[in-house]
Design a protein around this nucleic acid. Structure first.
Lengths: 286, 286
DNA sequence: TAGATTGTTAATCGATTAACAATC
DNA sequence: TAGATTGTTAATCGATTAACAATC
């Protein structure tokens, strides 16, 4: 999930489109563009909702914030709606973006076709590694971090993508903001702190997997009714002020190993080679 | 933003942790692991909330769903909380994952350190291109799509990552599900249809940028009070059943070009080389 | 006109947050 | 004990959705 912090309330002043609606407009747009390619002239809220994977009442409600672009008894004109949503999202103008951090992910982003096709133009690729400078990635020569401020001001860039390691992200962020960037898409696994007026959205690959793991675990436990119901019976294990010296013991005390009771038997395709109690990772990802 | 569809209500039966809370647990975990690395013994809800970028009341409420793991007047024991959250998320066990589609993005994912460090293990890389078969990526030889079913059953994989082009995603998804996968992380820009009981989470790079663009556009318009307030004065432009032949006209009629009035003047760093009315993209991203 | 489908209402649900009693 | 901080309550807010009148 992406976390967005905005400097205005969820329902913005002008015409007041709820944040949840804004987040769905790109989904509708994609579905509409697919219909447009197939030259489908009109679409009903039911059909479009199904294509976008949402409830049709929600879709109609969402569209009602944009205006009355449908026709009762008929549906929505595909081309007209594509245009109205594009306009609402600001995609009818050109948005130069810079990508900072041209590792595997940065290169993947540079090559991602979805950017160019929706009004986003990769204005520059920036990396701190001098060995990369000048090397073309997706046909664009990588520029050195030293040039960051110049690139941003000369190209009028207002959107920056951070694909650096976590350790460099805040520093890069600060420079981007100082150079005039007001929207940041952050792929580094860190919380960025930004001044008022700067939007940050976060894409975190590891977090998505962790959420899936949570549900996956629940599915496995579900086949043994009541197995997950057991509430940890012991109170807090240690008196926290003394916890520093007993950290490892706290984590590995007897009660904790109880948790595995009755799990993992229902679906034996899981956990092929893990021990009964997997070790916790000690390091943060890069 | 990622869209998750689950086969149970947002508040699940056993111990009932709200979906919004589950989505934040990885954030807390990351912040806690950073504290753990610095050997910080305890942390208050205020400190931790600040590190995770959330409200402290929300954090305490979130933790209350897990149990009473804090100490009044003191705070939370870092190690103990790391362990409890890890356990809740299912990260104390090993989760083998397969990545399907080893293009730029797939390779980036294979190399992403955040997977391995949190109980996720890349069990296999799969691609349909025979030229890639056997070629190592992130030290793991790519296997051919033909082997998909075998790989999944032999490794007991329950989580699949789809990083293929949009056109191949549903087909890959169907095969993954048929082979026993019950959780899918989808990077392809398509809505996947899956049977009941299969979770899909979606990461969409282009959508995140579009949401940023929306806010960016609003920021620009804001500097001219009232400029964005103007409501489209014209009713629906065409009688939709006849729209097929007039599609382009609909999109380009006089009223639509009005929308640009008064925009872009406040912040002239924007739109360095776009025309007054950028063309809409006609194609879907790969 | 009859059928279809939008746009909107209102009820419901879930999430957020300030406030504070409990308690270490 | 006094100070600090949790865990929980309750109010508020935003999002979802069924239902249906409006209307093409």
């Amino acid at each position: 999930m992406a976390t967005g912090r905005h400097h205005r309330p969820a329902t913005s002043r002008s015409r007041g489109i709820p944040e949840a609606t804004v987040a769905r407009l790109p989904l509708y747009l994609r579905a509409l563009m697919a219909l447009s390619e197939r030259s489908v002239p009109t679409v009903s809220s039911e059909e479009l909702a199904s294509a976008a994977g949402v409830n049709s009442a929600k879709l109609r409600k969402d569209f009602s914030y944009l205006g009355s672009y449908g026709t009762r008894g008929v549906g929505y004109d595909v081309e007209y709606l594509v245009y109205q949503i594009s306009r609402e999202l600001g995609l009818t103008q050109d948005w130069p973006v810079v990508i900072v951090g041209i590792g595997n992910l940065g290169a993947a982003l540079a090559n991602y076709g979805g950017f160019a096709s929706r009004g986003f133009r990769v204005a520059a690729l920036i990396d701190a590694d001098p060995a990369l400078t000048g090397k073309p990635v997706a046909g664009i020569p990588v520029q050195h971090t030293d040039e960051l401020e110049t690139i941003i001001s000369e190209n009028g860039v207002s959107i920056g993508v951070i694909a650096t390691p976590a350790g460099a992200a805040q520093q890069v962020c600060d420079r981007l903001v100082a150079a005039g960037i007001t929207s940041i898409l952050n792929f580094a696994p860190t919380v960025l702190s930004v001044p008022e007026g700067v939007d940050v959205r976060k894409v975190d690959l590891s977090i998505e997997l962790q959420i899936l793991a949570f549900h996956e675990q629940r599915k496995a436990g579900e086949e043994l009714p009541g197995a997950e119901e057991e509430v940890d019976p012991a109170p807090h294990p240690v008196s926290p002020p003394a916890a520093t010296v007993t950290k490892r013991e706290t984590k590995r005390d007897g009660r904790d190993s109880n948790r595995d009771s009755g799990r993992g038997t229902g679906r034996d395709a899981k956990r092929p080679d893990s021990g009964p109690d997997g070790d916790l990772p000690a390091v943060m990802p890069a």
